[in-house]
């Protein structure tokens, strides 16, 4: 029930556009571009699966401003992300950091491809043995051609 209520409450949040506003933007285009990139990797905590760059929620805007503030203060991209992460945890990172708990995630695609290729190689190597091409004997050949004739007659194509 509580979740239902929350879902209802959240559904009232408009998903209208216009996330980043001009007054948030930095004068330095290079810095602004970095801010945009960082924003795209940070998850908006009140919306569902949205980055803060495209969210118009209040908290997302605050975080965008914070990102820019930290950048202006001379922080590197990693430092800025770390600053936010220190307050909101790994949950805000849309790109999960490579840690023991995410090894399984990050290595899964590689493992899947390798596993698949291995399976493929096994299948192919099984097919190595020379193919026995034995022709049909006369009786069989006759049976088949008789059948084919019959089916040609039946099927007017």
């Amino acid at each position: 029930m509580k979740r239902l209520l929350l879902a209802l409450a959240l559904s009232l949040v408009p998903i209208a556009a216009g996330a980043v506003e001009p007054d948030e933007m930095l004068a330095d285009p290079a810095l602004e571009a970095r801010a945009r990139e960082i924003s795209k990797d940070l998850r908006c905590v009140v919306c569902q699966n949205q980055d803060i760059d495209s969210s118009n929620a209040g908290v997302a805007r605050d975080l965008r401003l914070l990102v820019r503030e930290r950048l202006l203060a001379g922080g590197s991209d990693a430092e800025v992300i770390e600053f936010i992460r220190a307050r909101y945890g790994d949950y805000v990172l849309l790109k999960p950091p490579l840690e023991p708990s995410t090894y399984a995630l990050w290595f899964a695609p590689v493992a899947l491809i390798l596993f698949g290729l291995l399976a493929g190689v096994i299948v192919l190597s099984r097919n190595r043995k020379p193919e026995a091409v034995s022709a049909l004997n006369e009786d069989d050949e006759k049976a088949v051609s008789e059948f084919l004739k019959r089916s040609d007659a039946g099927d007017a194509s």
Binding site: V133, V144, L148
Partner: peptide
């Protein structure tokens, strides 16, 4: 020819 041979064998086994 190889392909047809294969199919012929399948026809036989079905028949």
């Amino acid at each position: 020819q190889a392909a047809q041979l294969e199919i012929k064998k399948r026809i036989l086994s079905t028949l």
